[in-house]
Amino acid sequence: MTRRDIIRNAALAAAAGITTVASGQHVHEEVREQAAAGPYKAKAFTAREWAALRRLCDLIVPADEKSKGALDGHAPEYIDLLSSNNPELSSLFTGGLAWLDRESQRRFNGADFVSATADQQMALLDLIAYRKNESAELGPGIRFFDLVRRMTVDAFYTSAAGIAAVGYKGNKAVAKFEVPLEAIDYAVKRSGLG
């Protein structure tokens, strides 16, 4: 067997690994169906909750000049799907989003979270994004934010957009494993072990 054969066979096998897996195929079909049916319809949330959830995800992992963001990574859809399968999770989200709306209305002249200005939204998040603000008043918001943030991060960084953002280069068949010397030099110099 030549080196070229090995590469070709391994690459074929790698491709086969994707296309023969039934659940992978199933997902492709589901995505196609969704695209055909038009805009996504939330299963677990009202239109108002859905809008707030999307805004929240967008604030947590925004698109910027370097990379895409949570909306590109379908974070709201991920949260909706899991919530639609799990009443306990769904309650955490409907409860948390309602809490957010009420706090927003109380602080910003009756504007709910989506209607508040971007500065107001961030001012509210700045209260619930830090454990040092823990209090009887903010406790529910802090715990809700921790959950939304973890799920948004999970959804984004497991999406094609997030995998590109973090720069993962693998999941492919290669004939030889090599480590760039430049990367070794970078780490060794910084470690003080050089």
Binding site: G17, I18, V21, S23, Y78, L81, S83, N85, D154, A160
Partner: peptide, 20 residues
């Protein structure tokens, strides 16, 4: 049975479980 080379986004729940 093997899920070798699948990306997480090829599964709707990404590996978190059907019910998260």
């Amino acid at each position: 049975d093997y899920k070798e080379h699948m990306w997480p986004y090829q599964v709707p729940h990404r590996g978190a479980g059907e019910q998260g």
